[in-house]
């Protein structure tokens, strides 16, 4: 979380958006933190829209009134993605850590009334994955056109809470069956995206379509990253758009070039036929689990550190009941909002 004073100014963001358009960026996600907290959001959306970039707002929904939704739509906003933690208030508020469910529902209504494209995003884990039907029902009721069911991936906070969050294989299978049926039934009405956790895939995913390959993130304080979580890789330093142009960061910075191509790969990946598909896997996951950002992603079944994944999966499947340990929240650290 960046302090307000250290966030980029409106003029900075306007410049960054223009530089991004010149680089060939055609789609922008205003994310956060919470982008609705910025007073200049409408100005930035209007600017991105004038550059013919497709604008998405990624939000908790808190603070998205009908009036706000209309003004953002007038500024050119095309798509709003609202996060939910569950299909009903009680569980949603427990997981989120504060009473947000009803406010999110109001935000959803505001988006629909403003006639913008509505996406819902639900991050799935042990605590809500068995309630998938409720989530689908909520999505249908709200008239969402897209629903992202993304199982948690375990890097930062999720890694700290992995014991409580990683579902069992049985839970994943049950949920994926519910997903398959819903996808077939709602084919025309709603696009449903389903992402399983890396821990249950035998090969890693090509994270972000490859390191600094198709997209980039600019953090609120101006740090330019190849992916939203890359700042966690502590042995890499990232440049800031306050001091360098986006063009030079994209093309010339050592951080963006670090994991491009195949030169950097460990021998295991370099000699593997799947290297073009997964690019060695996720660098954040490699760093989080092994402390070495150059390692083969341990999600890969051939990785030397794959036993780390196997161990976590074993634990998740040996004890199918929720753990007693409290969740560690990002903001209210060590406050125990979840106790069973």
């Amino acid at each position: 979380m960046a302090q307000k004073e250290s966030e980029l100014s409106t003029a900075d963001w306007i410049r960054v958006l223009s530089e991004a358009a010149d680089l060939g960026v055609v789609e922008v996600h205003f994310s956060g933190g919470e982008p609705l907290l910025r007073d200049d959001l409408e100005i930035l959306i209007r600017h991105a829209n004038s550059l013919e970039m497709y604008t998405n707002l990624i939000t908790s929904g808190i603070g998205l009134t009908a009036e706000k939704a209309t003004s953002l739509k007038d500024a050119g906003l095309a798509n709003v993605q609202i996060s939910f933690q569950a299909g009903e208030a009680k569980l949603s508020d427990i997981i989120g850590g504060y009473k947000a469910f009803e406010k999110k529902r109001e935000a959803v209504k505001a988006v629909k009334e403003a006639e913008m494209h509505l996406s819902l995003n639900v991050v799935l884990h042990r605590m809500n994955i068995d309630k998938l039907e409720g989530i689908l029902k909520l999505a249908e009721e709200t008239g969402a056109e897209r629903l992202e069911l993304a199982n948690t991936q375990y890097y930062n906070w999720a890694l700290l809470n992995r014991e409580q969050l990683l579902p069992s294989w049985e839970q994943i299978q049950r949920a994926s069956e519910i997903y398959r049926k819903a996808k077939a039934r709602l084919e025309k009405k709603m696009e449903i995206i389903w992402v399983i956790p890396d821990y249950y895939a035998s090969t890693p995913k090509p994270c972000m379509g490859g390191w600094a390959a198709i997209g980039l993130t600019v953090a609120p304080d101006g740090v330019a990253l190849p992916c939203p979580t890359a700042a966690m890789i502590k042995d890499l330093s990232f440049e800031n758009v306050r001091y360098s142009s986006l063009n030079s960061i994209w093309n010339d910075s050592s951080s963006f070039n670090r994991f491009r191509g195949e030169e950097w790969m460990p021998e295991l990946c370099r000699s593997c036929d799947l290297r073009h598909e997964d690019g060695g896997g996720c660098r954040c996951q490699a760093f989080a689990l092994t402390g070495d950002s150059f390692a083969t992603d341990p999600a890969c079944k051939w990785a030397p550190e794959h036993y780390l994944i196997e161990k976590a999966v074993q634990d998740a499947n040996n004890d199918p009941k929720p753990q007693n340990k409290p969740l560690i929240y990002r903001r209210h650290q060590n406050k125990t909002l979840l106790k069973k």
């Binding site: 789609e27 497709y54 996406s119 056109e145």
Partner: peptide
């Protein structure tokens, strides 16, 4: 103009 291509932009899709 960068790619010299006509694009149809959609949520999470080009």
């Amino acid at each position: 103009k960068v790619r010299e291509k006509h694009l149809l932009l959609l949520p999470e899709k080009v």
